[in-house]
């Protein structure tokens, strides 16, 4: 990644971000593009849970765990680092937060994400959220609009090893393993 070379992965970096979520308005296919930060790309989708649906959402934790266990590369095209799913109530009712950190901007692979959510059964979590479009099965644009409208951009992001992609991390670990193997062979 270009940014990696300029800034160096070994120097931790923080970046504060304007309220809009971007520095300069740059249109993507579905709206303004959110920039890469030292913590790469990401989103934080927050929505209110429909009354009485908490357990339904919690139960899906197991479904996703099984889906990834059965097919560990199922989410590979999304270039993810981490996903976090949180349920919380700070006095205004139960809310759901879905936070992801990945290596490509939010807009580019939205259709891939929606298709993967559908194929893994993940989408069925979202039907428990207020504002989720009723015609989600046939209206891709409405689904994408939901994610964009419920995304709360960060105002600050930090990276201990900034701008490094998951692929680079995996390559580094593979190299380490290969060198370790090499040393074993030389004993």
């Amino acid at each position: 990644m270009a940014e990696t070379l300029e800034n160096g992965w070994s120097t931790p970096a923080a970046l504060s971000i304007p309220k809009e979520g971007y520095f300069k308005k740059e249109e993507g296919r579905y709206g303004p593009v959110f920039p890469q930060t030292p913590a790469n790309y990401g989103f934080s989708v927050i929505a209110k849970v429909k009354p009485g649906r908490e357990q339904a959402i919690r139960d899906y934790g197991k479904t996703i765990e099984e889906a990834v266990k059965g097919s560990p590369n199922v989410l590979a095209p999304l270039k993810l680092h981490y996903l976090r799913w949180v349920l919380f109530d700070v006095g205004s009712g139960l809310h759901f937060m879905y936070q992801g950190i990945f290596d490509t901007d939010f807009d580019k692979y939205l259709e891939d994400a929606v298709a993967l959510f559908n194929s893994t059964g993940l989408t069925t979590v979202f039907v428990n959220l207020e504002g989720w479009p009723e015609d989600w099965k046939t209206n891709l644009n409405a689904v994408i609009k939901f994610f964009r409208e419920h995304h709360c951009p960060s105002f600050l992001e930090y990276g201990e090893y900034p701008y490094v992609s998951a692929d680079e991390v995996k390559k580094a670990l593979k190299l380490k393993a290969a060198f370790s193997n090499m040393l074993d062979q030389m004993q």
Binding site: M1, A2, G28, R29, K108, L140
Partner: peptide, 18 residues
């Protein structure tokens, strides 16, 4: 989903496959 994706991402995204 079809044409614009091909041009904007697969043809033009510098981050494609890093």
């Amino acid at each position: 989903r079809q044409f614009e994706f091909l041009i904007s991402v697969w043809a033009n995204d510098p981050e494609f496959l890093e």
